[in-house]
Amino acid sequence: MESWVVEETQKNERIDKLIVALHEQASRTHVQKWINDGAVTVNGHVVKSNYKVQQGDQIELDEPAPEEIEIKPENIPLTVVYEDSDVIVVNKPRGMVVHPAPGHYTGTLVHALLFHCKDLSGINGEIRPGIVHRIDKDTSGLIMAAKNDHAHEQLSKQLKDKTTGRQYKAIVHGVLSHTKGTIDAPIGRDQKDRQKMAVTHMNSKAAVTHFTLEETFNEYSYVTCELETGRTHQLRVHFNYIEHPIAGDPKYGPKRTLDISGQALHAETLTFVHPRSEEKMAFTAPVPADMQRLLDELRDSH
């Protein structure tokens, strides 16, 4: 059960549109079905999709359980960086979706892991077995998955407590004026386009990114980024916010950009404490060939 109280800035908004903005994963079609099925109430009463909310309205959503989708293991090659009976670390290629979602019911990392591992934690249910954290489809790099519930709980706690380390390499538009910096700006659903996230103070969560400038080129910069928090599209949103969008990003960057399929963003380093042995683990994966090619071309032309 989720609930919200309507703020003054939200009054007179259609309830279906408002819930789409408040709910990170629901589409307007989903929300309208929930409203028609009586899963949404305002001040204890069922309403219609076109109901215009008023300040102080108490909205409650009793979200129905998702329809079960049978996920079958698929023999998809994986680049396994580390594996034991508790955890597996994989270098995910750009273009691979992490877990099944609308439009991506096959060919995901979860399908590949189910074939490779046979055993994954069940905490996230059938759709996301073993998945502790995510990286975007068109971001490459290191991701960890848990093979049992104990490992999943321990790794999730480390993410929540901000004791894991996640460093990324990125090529961004423009020449950064600072060699080091911190972007501390809350992220929430974009009010104008629900497919995007944005820096906003409305229904948002704290988001902090640290960056170090590695190299500059004529029109681009190469940076190391460290996540203090892990919000959806965080690095892509934050660098767009400071007017240095990530190169190749079709959602947040300019159309005129570098020749790469997806954003030039790579999860290079991952550190965590092993959930059973309590040993500190550290893994590194070099940037993929297409991103290295871009770096070489930028260096040659600089």
Rank of each mutant, 00 (worst) to 15 (best):
A198Q: 03
E67G: 15
G125Q: 11
R276P: 01
D136H: 13
Y220E: 01
Y222I: 04
E60H: 10
D296C: 00
Q158S: 11
V223T: 06
V40W: 06
A282R: 14
H210M: 04
L113I: 09
G141Y: 02
K157Q: 15
Q25K: 15
H173N: 12
A264I: 07
S204Y: 07
G262Y: 10
S85W: 02
A151H: 05
S27R: 08
Q154L: 11
Q234V: 07
I131T: 05
I19R: 08
I183E: 00
N43G: 11
T106K: 15
D296T: 09
E278H: 15
D190L: 12
E2L: 15
I187N: 03
Y51S: 08
V47E: 04
Y51G: 06
M197L: 07
E2P: 02
E226N: 08
H238A: 02
G141R: 03
G103Y: 04
E214N: 13
T271Q: 13
S121C: 09
K72N: 10
I246Y: 01
N75M: 10
T269R: 15
V90E: 01
D16Y: 06
G103T: 12
D296G: 00
G141K: 01
H210L: 04
G38R: 09
G95H: 09
A185V: 02
L235Q: 00
G44E: 03
Q58R: 15
S221Y: 00
L109T: 11
G95F: 06
G262H: 11
V98G: 05
N218P: 01
K11A: 11
N50V: 04
H104K: 09
H133V: 11
F115M: 03
L155V: 14
T224E: 09
Q263Y: 11
L114T: 09
I59M: 06
F272H: 10
S3P: 00
H150K: 14
V98F: 06
G165D: 09
V20K: 06
G181H: 05
Q55T: 14
N43H: 09
T271K: 12
S261D: 12
E278F: 14
A101K: 06
H201T: 15
G122N: 10
R134Y: 07
Q32V: 06
A146S: 12
A282V: 08
S140G: 13
E2D: 09
G95D: 08
D300F: 03
T216K: 13
R236S: 02
M1F: 10
N218M: 09
V110D: 04
K162Y: 08
M291S: 03
S49K: 15
I69G: 04
C225W: 03
N50H: 14
H133R: 11
P129F: 05
A21Y: 10
P64W: 10
N50C: 02
T257E: 05
A21K: 13
E278V: 02
I88S: 05
P250W: 07
C225M: 13
Q10C: 10
D119V: 12
D184P: 00
K251P: 01
A247W: 02
E215M: 05
Y82V: 13
